[in-house]
Design a binder for these strands. Structure first.
Length: 297
DNA sequence: GACCAGGGTAACT
DNA sequence: AGTTACCATGGT
């Protein structure tokens, strides 16, 4: 990859394993907006990014990060887009472990696991329970518009950042219910209070083992195995975690087990085969399975 | 109107 | 340890 500035924009050229559409729409992220054929507005924590990716030939082409300095890229987006990770090596490894991933990886070779903001990820996946992705996105947008911070970029694109713990702490359970989060309102309150009062700290969670961190997250009301696994994978950089939801269960049953299979057995299989790259394998499989309606009669 | 959605809890056996 | 009703809300 080549990085260089042009006017106020930053260009990432000769991209490898990078497709902004697949990255954003593969189900890991809920806070973005498609604003053009090749353009996306990404809200990540307290940052906003207008990014445009254009392909040439059969390569992944280049991305323009509008109104972005190289310093900002190195400080924020390099980590956010997981640019320090060698996806070629990951693909090789998980494909060698099990070739049935072949079509999933081939279908969406440009997926990356984002390093998303911890707090936003936690609240987002609490909201995700028993909801469809478009509706999750709608609720995240509502909360951001109501309680987040409005940001306007030099090129005129605007968006609302997800509220910080301090901003959400001021919001009562009743107000949350007015945002249509339903029975999740007390769950969100409990999460916000534990974060706000320092009962759970991101730095601590990052230092713990995965099992310790999961147990800590599950002390929050409304946070169980699946939500905490998503927070670990998408918000705490634990790439070896393999969240199993209703989709992954169906997908794994279709591709691997050919029969009704419990979550524990599915996880055991994933950790044995994909090891430290289980989270990546999960995301290729999830997106592939969902796009193809795998396991749905 | 029944059923399901990137689930979790509480109250049962 | 394993089932089951229920939780708000929106879509099919």
């Amino acid at each position: 990859m080549n990085i260089y500035s042009r006017d106020n924009d930053l260009i990432l050229d000769e991209l490898c394993d990078f497709d902004i559409e697949d990255i954003l729409e593969c189900g890991q992220c809920f806070h973005y907006e498609k604003i053009g054929e090749h353009d996306y507005l990404v809200c990540a924590g307290q940052e906003l990014l207008h990014i445009r990716q254009t392909r040439y030939g059969n390569s992944m082409g280049q991305a323009v990060l509008y109104d972005t300095t190289e310093e900002e890229y190195q400080r924020i987006w390099h980590n956010y887009f997981d640019m320090g990770t060698d996806y070629g090596h990951i693909k090789e490894t998980i494909l060698a472990a099990d070739s049935r991933l072949g079509s999933a990886v081939a279908a969406k070779p440009g997926i990356r696991i984002l390093h998303q903001d911890f707090f936003e990820t936690l609240i987002s996946f609490i909201i995700s329970q028993n909801k469809q992705i478009p509706h999750i996105r709608q609720l995240i947008e509502t909360l951001s518009k109501q309680y987040g911070t409005k940001k306007i970029k030099p090129d005129g694109s605007k968006g609302y950042t997800f509220p910080t713990p301090e901003q959400l702490y001021m919001v009562s359970e009743e107000e949350l219910r007015k945002c249509k989060v339903g029975f999740r309102a007390p769950y969100i309150r409990d999460a916000v209070e534990k974060i706000y009062h320092g009962e759970l700290r991101e730095e601590h969670l990052r230092k713990m083992s995965v099992d310790e961190a999961r147990a800590a997250l599950m002390t929050i009301k409304g946070v169980g195995e699946k939500v905490s696994n998503c927070v670990l994978l998408f918000g705490l950089g634990r790439a070896d975690v393999f969240p199993v939801d209703v989709w992954m269960k169906r997908i794994m049953e279709t591709l691997y087990f050919k029969k009704d299979t419990g979550r524990e057995e599915i996880e055991k299989f994933a950790y044995a085969h994909f090891g430290e790259y289980a989270g990546y394998a999960q995301q290729y499989l999830f997106y592939y399975g969902r796009e193809n309606g795998l396991g749905k009669s």
